Structures are given as C-alpha cells and as structure tokens.
Computed example of a mutant assay.
Amino acid sequence: MEYSYPFSIDWSKNEIVDVIAFFQTIEKAYEKGVKREEVLLKYRRFKEIVPSMAEEKTIFREFEEESGYISYDIVKQTKTSPDGTIIKGINKHGR
C-alpha cells in the first residue's frame, strides 16, 4: 500500500504496531474478508490504545482519507454479526 497509517507520537512502539495491525485487518476485510473474531481481537486492542470515541473517529477519518477504506463500516458489521462470520467490506470510499 502506498499510504501512511495514522498514529500518535504519544504511543509506544508496540501500540503503534498494534494500531497498524488493526488497520491491516480492515484492509484485509476489504480485499479478501476476515473472520469476525480476528476483527474483534484487533479492535479491542485498538480501543485499549484509543479509548476516546472522538479520537477514534478522527483516526478512522485520517485512515479513510489516506486509504479509502472505511473502518467504521467494518467495525459496525463486526459488532452486529454472529461468531464465525467472514467480515467483508462492500466498497471503498472514492476508489
């Protein structure tokens, strides 16, 4: 991918790696599909790092502007799907 991932200079190296892993899971959901449980695991870790809903929205928006992938849609689909579901993004914004 030819874009950068959003992160905060206040995060540790491990937190940056974990946030990038979350966004790579979002990419995977759009490209191939990913198990619901994997998205939940990565999202829960993301929320440990970014507990604020306002900050989450800002980071999601930054990622969408860079990549075209809509994180909110994947997270929403994950929260409303039963275990064992393959989460797949329908379309990318502006792509």
Rank of each mutant, 00 (worst) to 15 (best):
M1W: 01
S4I: 04
S4Y: 09
Y5W: 00
Y5S: 03
P6F: 09
F7A: 05
S8D: 02
S8K: 01
W11V: 04
S12Q: 06
K13H: 00
E15R: 02
E15V: 00
E15D: 13
V17S: 05
D18T: 01
F22N: 10
F23W: 00
F23S: 02
I26N: 10
E27D: 08
K28H: 11
K28S: 14
A29H: 11
A29R: 12
Y30I: 07
E31G: 10
G33P: 00
G33E: 09
V34M: 11
K35H: 08
R36D: 12
R36M: 13
E38P: 04
E38T: 13
V39H: 01
V39Q: 03
L40F: 08
L40S: 05
L40T: 08
Y43K: 13
R45D: 01
F46Y: 14
K47F: 01
I49P: 02
M53F: 07
A54C: 04
E56Q: 13
E56Y: 07
K57N: 11
I59Q: 03
R61S: 09
E62N: 03
G68R: 13
G68P: 12
G68C: 09
Y69T: 09
Y69C: 13
I70E: 10
D73E: 13
D73C: 09
V75K: 02
P82D: 12
D83R: 12
I86W: 12
I87S: 13
K88S: 15
G89L: 14
N91W: 10
N91R: 11
N91Q: 07
K92D: 14
H93R: 11
G94I: 15
R95H: 12
